[in-house]
Design a protein around this nucleic acid. Structure first.
Lengths: 210, 210
DNA sequence: GTTCCAAATCAATCAGCGATAAGTTATCAG
DNA sequence: CTGATAACTTATCGCTGATTGATTTGGAAC
């Protein structure tokens, strides 16, 4: 008798990158349900149908799994932002739609958003350093698209601030504040979420556009 | 020979609440430097000069230590907000001054702000749930003062949104976004800090006031 | 069909974590 | 001095992320 354990017997060898995708699928499910910190590598391995050390053949650390999911999520955000950017029309409605794309993404992918923008710093190597800064690089690419959107309005003299970069950073901060608080403080007695988002987007638009 | 360990010998018994304060001081320092998650109870105990289990005579869990620091930070912010609230005058300048009080607090006490608003979720159940909701209650008290400020302008019909609470939450999110990003991402290529704060405060004021 | 090798996977293990249990020491009342 | 109580200790538990070295697997070569 090799083992009385309840875990399913060893799966056949993963062909090509399938096993890697299975790990990412398992991790995404668990991360979304319980958060990155609360999920152990053993839980991921069990869902993926492999032993816990086998994870390390595909990812150097648990954070690398989160980083991979993060980069993929930000690729989605970048696509959404770019899609709404190319439809540029100089209207307040379009401007608000751009802001909403960012908020909706953060609320749809709270774990990815947390990984990219809400992790605490660390003395000896932050998460971003340990994962080669790939999530942050992906995040800056998204920021660049956002800056382009603001620049389009600035070029037409529609932005209040004469400094388009300052306006972009301020708007980004305004968006980030709502997303991060809704993610980090779900217990807070928020007003209806849709109403809050509408109020916030309207406030930022009215404050930023002439 | 009882022990060849290098740790300092046992300290005299802590009189009254001194030992508790020493623990809080050690924890605040470490939390600020490395983040709550990255700090172990053993590290806190060593700085405080006691053994690690001795912490549990004063705090039920590690999160309780963070919660205590969180509540204290909220108390300081609440006092500042109340001080600026009682000087109410119905001008845009006063409104912006109220917003700046919040931003200045966050930038003056980044460690306390981080503990109060930027903590990660804990293992099972949120940080706020495990600590009996005391930080959330303290936060709501601060929020109430801020809501009072907004209500003073709302009562004079100066607020754009017809829902004063939604406007308050939106403004708070806007402030938090700038403070938390400046604290968490100091390496980002921000524009001049004073200019950014001025732009942000002006944007929020223009977006929230008629 | 057999042999062989490299990749894939595993059980066993490590140091460190938060937290608990049980025994020891310091302090003080009588 | 004695007993009780609170403070503190060492030792330990079950867990974590990660590493090591042995074992199994699948396919290519013959």
């Amino acid at each position: 008798m090799k083992s009385p354990k309840t875990r399913s017997p060893r799966k056949p060898k993963g062909h090509g990158g399938e096993r890697r995708e299975e790990i990412l699928d398992a991790a995404l499910t668990l991360f979304s349900q319980k958060g990155v910190q609360a999920v152990s590598t053993r839980q991921i391995a069990e869902i993926a149908g492999i032993s816990q050390p086998a994870l390390y053949a595909y990812f150097a650390t648990k954070d690398d799994i989160a980083a991979e999911l993060c980069v993929r999520a930000f690729a989605i955000l970048g696509q959404r932002m770019e899609a709404v950017r190319v439809d540029y029309v100089p209207t307040a409605e379009h401007f608000e739609r751009c802001l909403r794309v960012y908020i909706d993404f953060g609320l749809d992918h709270p774990d990815a958003y947390r990984v990219a923008f809400m992790l605490e710093k660390s003395v000896d190597g932050s998460f971003l350093e340990k994962t080669g800064g790939r999530p942050m690089i992906a995040g800056q690419a998204v920021f660049a698209v956002f800056a382009e959107i603001v620049a389009q309005f600035h070029a037409r003299g529609e932005i209040v601030s004469d400094d388009a970069i300052a306006a972009t950073q301020s708007l980004w901060a305004g968006l980030h504040g709502l997303v991060s608080l809704l993610i980090a403080r779900p217990e807070f007695p928020w007003v209806d979420r849709e109403q809050l988002i509408a109020t916030h987007v309207a406030m930022l638009r009215k404050g930023a556009l002439k």
